[in-house]
Design a protein around this nucleic acid. Structure first.
Lengths: 117, 117
DNA sequence: TTGACATATGTCGATATGGATATATGATGT
DNA sequence: ACATCATATATCCATATCGACATATGTCAA
């Protein structure tokens, strides 16, 4: 079995650089597909496909306008990622200065028996 | 061409649920591989494989202790993800209340010609 | 209705996975 | 040296991609 379908969750959707690129572009505002084709350099079908994945995880919304489909970002879908990563923010943020040393020592004590849990 | 190697960057490394699970466990402190095998329910080779990917993107560090290899988290490697997602935090955080409406209007004006950039 | 434009979907080939299994490497104790 | 424990690596199979290309769907204009 290979990796679960990319469509499954936001983490997978965003693992693809081109999809991040698309989101970054859309962060500047609503865009029709053709704009994205031009800006990304991808072929149109590929863009539509990436947009589909992004749609399926809710990272973008669409709106029809004449023959065009205007895509816009829905950052909400990225919240799970933000929340998950935020737990590790401690590692690099100065906001948690002294605290770390202490916590790490406590953790080391708890775990150093190496037995299962 | 298929998806870029999972090994390439943190986004891909973390796209795999099992690897997030491993990181979550390691968040509780340093652990030998065997602990992870027990806690994840994965077979030992699979765990070693996931750890390798995590190592290659710098998300974990290893330390030898006798026959064991103790893995620990290095959250630093996740900073790029945090930084990228943070740009979209506006969408769900109440911290940016009124601001949004204004910005969105500005963006709409900038973009509504639909031409390329 | 016909034709052009905008986007979506289907198919194909190449490749990168993840899990299962077998096996290699490495350290420890006797 | 040998058996054992702990971990890493290699091979295999099934599957999920991605990009390229062809084509379908849908909208507007004449």
């Amino acid at each position: 079995m290979a990796r679960a379908a990319t469509t499954a969750d936001a983490f997978n959707a965003v693992a693809e650089p081109r999809r991040r690129q698309i989101l970054d572009i859309l962060a500047g505002g609503e865009r029709p597909v053709n704009d994205l084709v031009g800006l990304t350099g991808l072929a149109q079908p590929q863009v539509s496909r990436h947009l589909r994945v992004l749609r399926e995880v809710g990272a973008v919304d669409v709106r029809d306008q004449g023959r065009q489909r205007l895509y816009r970002i829905n950052g909400q879908a990225l919240k799970p990622i933000h929340d998950w990563v935020a737990a590790y923010e401690r590692s690099w943020s100065e906001r948690f200065g002294q605290l770390d040393a202490v916590l790490e020592e406590l953790q080391a004590e708890e775990v150093d028996d190496g037995s299962d849990e």
